[in-house]
Design a protein around this nucleic acid. Structure first.
Lengths: 143, 143
DNA sequence: GGCATTTAATTGGCCGCGCAAGCAATTGGT
DNA sequence: ACCAATTGCTTGCGCGGCCAATTAAATGCC
């Protein structure tokens, strides 16, 4: 066995992929693709907001958000309108149809969380959350 | 603050993204896209092997591996040839050019690992590795 | 006011990644 | 020996995601 394996980085990459796959499985029947639910949650949690805010909060590239929003609009989950105070900005808001989805998405997310953490006791869960948070901090602000 | 946040699932998704971005940054100058280094590492660690083996070890979809290998071949890092014993199978092997890359990739991966784990002591690192492993187990086999 | 700079979005291009459908070779059962 | 089922791989398609380049609007500075 070569030494390039068993690193946290490898584990993280693999876990993230299966986790995303599991999310995809749960979201599939709701008509959402993995990643989109995070954007919708932002809208549900913080209400209508310009894309710049979504970009900021999701930590995604502007072009990614533009196209995600376009597709979500196409799917009927989101509405876009030009801001009056800043005519460059595009305000994004969840539609009524999306409101109906919220319950199911939250539920799916809960299932995913439980599936993910199955067999970990409270202190282990807290430990994992904290370690991930610190790792995020390490990687977050790098040049 | 709504309750949909602060879940391990959210943290995991975010951490995975910044981690991948960091990997991309480090691999960029080497001409590799994030994800490809994992495939190359398989080849370096286990030698020439059929795609089926790569699919198995990487846990990726067959179509994903097919196209990754095609692109890596295009880039000159990999060679493909039909297996003699099973003419459906495609054997994949690293090229000499790729051998030269190995050192740098291993180095980049080491940097990434250290960057990721900065500020965590040995027991915390071990703890994170173990928790990730258990989470992977939870999500891995979910028929 | 006038002009350079910064900011918000968009588009084109490319990659990773998965699902679905399909093809060819191999294996298994009878 | 034959034919069904399985296996290995490929292609079409669509989405998430990034970078680079572009346009339009807003801001800053003189």
């Amino acid at each position: 066995m070569s030494a390039t394996h068993d690193t946290v980085s490898h584990a993280l990459a693999r876990v993230a992929r299966v986790h995303r796959a599991a999310a995809g499985q749960l979201l599939r029947s709701l008509g959402l693709h993995p990643g989109q639910e995070l954007l919708m949650m932002q809208l549900w949690d913080h209400g209508p907001q310009p894309q710049a805010q979504l970009i900021e909060r999701l930590g995604l590239d502007a072009s990614t958000v533009t196209r995600m929003v376009q597709r979500l609009e196409q799917a009927g989950f989101v509405r876009r309108r030009r801001s009056d105070t800043d005519r460059r900005a595009v305000l994004v808001e969840a539609t009524a149809a999306a409101q109906a989805l919220q319950e199911q998405v939250v539920q799916a997310w809960r299932e995913l969380e439980e599936l993910t953490l199955r067999g970990l006791d409270d202190s282990e869960r807290a430990g994992l959350a904290e370690l991930l948070s610190r790792v995020e901090g390490n990687l977050g602000r790098l040049g």
